[in-house]
Amino acid sequence: MAIPPQTAGGARVSDDLEDLISRCALGDRAAFAALYDATSAKLYAVCARVLGQDHAAEDAMQDAYVKIWAHAGRYRVTGHAPMTWLITIARNTAIDRLRARRLHHDIEEHHGGIAAPGPSPESVALARSEAGRIQRCLEELEQDRRAAITGAYLDGLSYAELATRAGIPLNTMRTWLRRGLAALRECMSR
């Protein structure tokens, strides 16, 4: 028994994630703790991007792991890679919390302000292939469409908020998003 030094690449870890999720589905607490150790910095990064680096991000990350523990048995039917599944849960959980907070603020303060997003992911150089590829594909898009996709996906903005921010009618925003997503998919499948 040894405390393994963490490898810089983490390739072994990513190979093990699927196994850890399967063991979580069987109620293996040690596997869950290991899954947390291997992935929490990634999921916290998502939550901090959406909610800002404060207590809300930590709470959202915890909520995400509670869902991961509860739904580990459903992981396989999604056909996702482990990190895709984990990131999607973290993103959705953080966005839900962001919207609840925004709604709360709207009711309290009667202003439709848009929460300031964290550092733009576009500004961050990413080495991993999928993340790097989607960044390159985003860069190929027109600025307006890129802003619509990231505004919806990472800032949790509604159509109305996206349209207001861009100063265009709601239906036009829907068309922008539709074309932007189509172009993104086309670029990603190249």
Binding site: A33, A41, K42, Y44, V46, V124
Partner: peptide, 28 residues
């Protein structure tokens, strides 16, 4: 979900030190 998740594939950021214990205490 698969095609959009890379947007949220960000550089790792260590969560606050107490988060792990709080989560495990909450679940178990």
């Amino acid at each position: 979900e698969r095609q959009l998740a890379p947007l949220a594939d960000l550089p790792p950021l260590a969560p606050p030190a107490g988060a792990r214990a709080a989560l495990l205490q909450r679940l178990f």
